[in-house]
């Protein structure tokens, strides 16, 4: 029983990384109807840039190795900057010419292009192997009635909860949030009613960069290791979480991300680590075929042509 509870706590901690990335996915798909494949790369970029700055310091010999917290902050800034570049080249060019059935995928395909660009540039610059990240001691633990909780993970979980809550409040109450929801509902009508789509859409990408960068930074601190391919695994599980929770719903992504964390932990517990890929992706496939709406999603998303 104790072991089971410990696994449950571990699942919650693991799930919180997925939650942040899944929220980033669901935000772009819910508002812009755009499956943004650069998200795993942004996650990786924050971690890798953070590592490089804390290992080598700024380029051109401008400084020595930086403190890990500062390095990660710059890493997050880099993720936001790249996300805005992605906006410039994927979303702004979305002009449907013929309206045929694969044309709505244009931003998706350019985001795949960006995925290749950023990931391979990072590989060229920093090498392909995993690197040890010099963060705080990730093994500081808190003993709660026999269950061990790692303090950095607990802090990450709190930050995740805070961010999601702030995001939901922003979407609900602020002017920008109302504008974004209007765009999600109907971009043309929003435009006519005086919402400046060109200025408000970059906000989505800034948020995406922020969420992914933060997740990457928290991951680097918690696991003490970064690698150029770390985004693929997290990104794919976040996608699974988003679909299970329902496309376009922030709370759905939270629920789905936690579900995937739980599913992963249970699979490892009962069947071993090798079968995680089958179970998580199999669950995704089943949900997509049988219940594409997900737990909290709306049916309209992902079908219409933007």
């Amino acid at each position: 029983m104790m072991l089971f509870l410990q696994q449950l706590v571990n699942a919650l901690m693991l799930g919180s990384v997925y939650v942040t990335v899944a929220v980033a996915f669901t935000l772009t798909i819910g508002i812009l109807n755009f499956l943004n494949f650069t998200i795993p790369t942004l996650f990786m970029l924050a971690g890798m840039v953070g590592w490089a700055l804390s290992y080598w310091g700024l380029p051109f010999g401008l400084s020595g190795p930086l403190h890990w917290a500062l390095a990660l902050a710059i890493g997050i800034a880099a993720a936001i900057a790249v996300s805005l570049i992605v906006e410039r080249f994927t979303f702004r060019y979305l002009k449907t010419k013929y309206g045929d059935s694969t044309e709505h995928a244009i931003p998706l395909v350019s985001s795949l292009g960006f995925l290749l660009i950023v990931e391979n540039l990072v590989r060229i610059a920093y090498g392909t192997e995993a690197r040890r990240f010099p963060g705080p001691d990730a093994n500081m633990t808190l003993d709660v009635g026999g269950i061990l909780v790692r303090i950095p993970q607990l802090v990450s979980l709190l930050i995740t909860v805070l961010i999601v809550f702030a995001l939901v409040q922003m979407m609900k109450r602020s002017r920008i949030g109302r504008g974004l929801r209007a765009i999600a509902e109907n971009p043309d009508a929003a435009n006519i009613l005086g919402i400046d789509t060109k200025r408000i859409v970059p906000v989505v990408f800034m948020l995406t960069g922020l969420l992914c960068g933060l997740a990457g930074a928290l991951f680097a601190v918690n696991y003490g290791e970064v690698a150029p391919m770390m985004g693929e695994d997290i990104g794919s599980k976040a996608i699974a979480g988003m679909v299970i929770g329902g496309l376009g719903s922030i709370w759905g992504a939270v629920l789905g991300g936690l579900c995937v964390g739980l599913l992963e932990m249970m699979t490892v517990h009962f069947f071993g680590a090798d079968t995680v890929q089958i179970v998580v992706w199999g669950a995704l496939l089943v949900v997509l075929i049988l219940y594409p709406k997900g737990i909290l999603g709306h049916h309209s998303i992902g079908k219409g042509k933007l």
Binding site: L35, V243, Q277, G282, L284, L288, I289, G302
Partner: peptide, 27 residues
């Protein structure tokens, strides 16, 4: 079954299929 889905869902379903195949082979 997969063609009941369209757009983003189809992309995700085919992607998930490839991951399941790779996972099955590995195991």
């Amino acid at each position: 079954p997969i063609l009941r889905t369209r757009g983003v869902y189809l992309v995700l379903a085919t992607f998930a299929f490839a991951e399941v195949v790779a996972g099955l082979i590995l195991n």
